[in-house]
């Protein structure tokens, strides 16, 4: 299923920021610093198991539960 990485990133940003734009931006920057560039992933990006695992780890770091 393409686009899973973007969905996961969006979920992390939404959960963490609760709609606060400043926190959303800082969360995206924190992801970038963890080696996950949110701008690289679109709804059509092919899923990559290694990236998915990396994003799951980031979610755990942030205390965000991904469904």
């Amino acid at each position: 299923m393409p686009g899973l990485v973007k969905k996961m990133i969006d979920a992390i940003v939404l959960e963490r920021s609760k709609g606060n734009v400043v926190i959303a931006n800082s969360t995206r920057t924190k992801l970038l610093l963890k080696g996950i560039d949110p701008l690289k992933y679109t709804p059509t990006t092919e899923d990559d198991a290694a990236i998915i695992a990396k994003v799951r780890t980031a979610a755990l770091d942030f205390g965000v539960r991904l469904s």
């Binding site: 800082s26 924190k30 610093l33």
Partner: peptide
């Protein structure tokens, strides 16, 4: 810094 940033939104 990663530990702080993971835990809090305080900059």
């Amino acid at each position: 810094m990663e530990g702080l940033g993971d835990a809090t939104d305080v900059l």
